[in-house]
Simulated assay, not measured.
Amino acid sequence: MKLDFTGKVALVTGSTKGIGFATAKALAESGADVIVNGRSEETTSAAAGKIGARAIAGDLATAEGCAMLAKSVGHVDILVNNAGIFVPADFFASDDEEWERHWQINVMGPVRLSRALAPAMVEKGWGRIILLGSESAFNIPADMIHYGVTKTADVSFARGLAKRLAGTGVTVNSVLPGPTLSDGAEEMLSQEVKKTGKSLEEVAADFVMKNRPSSIIQRAATVEEVANMIVYACSEQASATTGASLRVDGGVVDSI
């Protein structure tokens, strides 16, 4: 199977590092005209330069920021809603502001961009919209209830939008990573790496087995492994896949 995105324009939000950057890189290597997005002009331009992509910075935490990004990119064939945040915090220490921040970035950002960019896809008769969910959409983490709720909302939104766009040639899916060696995870585990002298991969595997013992691969995924699933869902070959929550969680979600 050869995935060829020649002639397709792809916007990947939050793509200056981690899963987003790996996805943007893979799409670019497969021929897509990729738009890298981040909050900072400097980091966005630097990331885009590494893969020969276009750079458009924009803060997706506000309606105004989403509108500016949508206007700047114009028409896209592929929208990967990857930008998101997670902040571990006990429920009773999470105030309205923290809930609202997660909701605006993780849920309303994808809603606003999809609403702005999907009509042109429908008019063209082809498009792909991806929502980055998480295994936390099903296994709500006790230390990040606010995050889990937003990821459940992303999965629901993808399913509903897929139904709304039925028969248009535009597919909508969510992708559910499990524990992944993203930049954020590496930062979170860095102290344990220094403390134990173990490799990052070993520390990550220990973390997975302690905190996600249902994992079948018994390790953290790489960002490239997650990006592979996203890129396939964006392809022509995935034309019969829509309204799905595609798990690349290492088997963490214990269901069939």
Rank of each mutant, 00 (worst) to 15 (best):
W99L: 04
H102I: 11
N139S: 03
L131K: 04
S134R: 01
D96F: 12
R115K: 15
A116W: 01
V122D: 02
D90N: 14
T152H: 15
T150N: 10
R101C: 11
S156G: 15
Q104K: 14
S94I: 03
E123N: 05
V122F: 15
L131V: 00
V111K: 06
V149Q: 05
G127D: 01
M144Y: 03
D95Q: 11
D154R: 05
D154Q: 13
G133A: 08
G109V: 01
I145H: 14
S156P: 00
E98G: 07
V107Y: 07
R159K: 15
E123G: 09
E97W: 02
F138C: 15
D96Q: 12
Q104M: 10
L132T: 03
L161I: 01
S156D: 07
S136I: 04
I140Q: 00
H146Y: 10
W126C: 13
F91H: 07
P119G: 09
S114K: 08
W99R: 11
R128Q: 02
S134C: 00
P119H: 07
D143C: 02
L113C: 05
Q104E: 15
K124P: 12
V122H: 03
P110M: 12
K124C: 07
W103C: 05
V155R: 08
D90W: 09
L131G: 09
E135I: 06
V107G: 08
A142H: 10
E98H: 13
E97P: 00
I145Q: 03
A162P: 06
K124H: 13
M144E: 05
H102D: 04
G133E: 04
E100S: 15
I145Y: 11
V155F: 15
R128K: 08
L132G: 00
V122M: 03
R115P: 00
W103T: 14
E123I: 10
G133D: 01
V111L: 04
F157C: 00
M121D: 06
D154W: 12
V122T: 13
F157H: 02
S134G: 02
D154C: 15
I105Q: 05
M121I: 08
D95F: 10
V155C: 10
P141I: 11
M144T: 06
I145A: 10
A153V: 05
V149N: 04
I140E: 08
A153M: 05
T150M: 11
W99D: 04
P88Y: 06
W126Q: 09
F138I: 15
R159H: 08
F92G: 01
A120C: 03
